[in-house]
Amino acid sequence: MNETSKGVIAIIVACTVWGLSPLYYYMLRHVPPLELLSHRTLWSLVLFSLFLLVQGRLRELPTLMRGRTMLLVAVAAIVISINWGGFILSVQIGMVVEASLGYFIFPLIMALLGAVFFGERLTGSKLFAIFLAVLAVVVLTLGLGVAPWLALLLGGTFAAYSVIKKLLAVGPVVSVTAEVLFLAPLALIWLAGTHFAGWQGIVGRTGAVFGTGLGDSLLLIASGLLTAGPLMLLSFASRRLTLSTVGVVQYLNPSLQFMCAVVLLGETITLWHMIAFPMIWVALTIYSAGAYRQDKAARRAETA
């Protein structure tokens, strides 16, 4: 098997895990979101640290903990924790359909931010795709009487996180390890409060879930693998595939989330969703086709 095939398998597995993750969080819907987020942070820190230890790269972490780089790591940590927490909440309140919308529009938000912060060129096809996505959000807002705030939060925070990551001149695994290391003290404080002080996580429940049953405890520990595993696979795939290939395959993630929400979790699809989502899918098709042509032209220019 060649390196390209390995990269394709890695990105498909990563996106499949992300896409099916609503089912995992649904099994833990009785766990307060902040407790679940804290466990996700701490157990992923354990796995990321072990991975870097095996690679002999733990010494790279201190270089991220000073000056401007430390500030970027701190901001990235806050942004990704909001994204993770928002997704966990979307499962618990039955809004996975809207969450999937957020990850569908993420590439389009990213294209806009790329133009604003990095001067990346917006072709006509990309501009039209962004316009179509904005129109779809307007349709949902007018039809449902409220803006899809959760979708905008998830798509916006993940796009902002990607912008910050682009400013960090280190590998993705090293940087995300530094981010969860930054968040770890907050997670420990929260878990200490729930375990020893009985802090209230959700209405009607106090205290911690971890330790009250083997099944729940093992699932909470597994949140680290669910976080670390796909990111490591994405890093592996990104070194072997073109960005356009990685970008297109990543649409598998929100597609599976959408299917989980409708087919398995029984979420309702309104008429307005049936109008807005096809508009988003058309926008993504146009955007992907334009990005592919642009990437192909750039490769031809490099080999000319």
Rank of each mutant, 00 (worst) to 15 (best):
N2H: 08
N2T: 12
E3Y: 06
A14H: 04
A14C: 11
C15V: 04
L23N: 07
Y24V: 11
V31I: 13
P32I: 13
L34V: 03
L34D: 00
T41E: 01
W43V: 05
S44F: 02
V46F: 06
F51M: 15
L53R: 07
V54L: 14
Q55H: 01
L58T: 03
T63R: 08
R68W: 08
V73D: 07
A74M: 13
A74K: 01
A76D: 01
I80L: 09
W84K: 04
G85A: 11
G86E: 03
L89W: 13
S90Q: 06
V91W: 00
Q92N: 12
I93K: 02
G94E: 09
S100A: 15
L101N: 01
Y103H: 06
I105H: 00
I109N: 00
L112G: 10
F118Y: 14
F118D: 11
T123V: 11
K126I: 13
L127K: 14
I130W: 01
L132V: 13
L132T: 12
L132A: 10
L140Y: 00
L144I: 10
A147M: 13
A147D: 07
W149P: 03
G156I: 08
T157I: 10
F158A: 08
S162Q: 12
A169W: 02
A169M: 10
V170E: 06
G171Y: 03
G171A: 14
V173F: 10
V173D: 00
V174T: 10
T177F: 12
V180F: 11
L181S: 11
G193V: 02
T194N: 04
H195F: 08
F196H: 12
F196Y: 14
W199Y: 09
Q200T: 15
G207A: 11
A208W: 06
G211R: 00
T212I: 07
L225G: 14
M232C: 09
L233H: 00
L241M: 01
T242G: 14
T245G: 02
V246L: 07
G247W: 00
V248L: 15
V248F: 08
Q250K: 11
Y251C: 12
L252W: 01
P254L: 10
P254I: 10
F258W: 03
V263T: 13
L264G: 01
L265R: 09
I269M: 15
P278H: 02
I280L: 11
L284C: 13
T285G: 15
I286V: 13
I286L: 14
S288M: 12
R293N: 09
R293G: 05
D295T: 12
A298H: 02
R300W: 07
A301R: 06
E302F: 10
T303W: 11
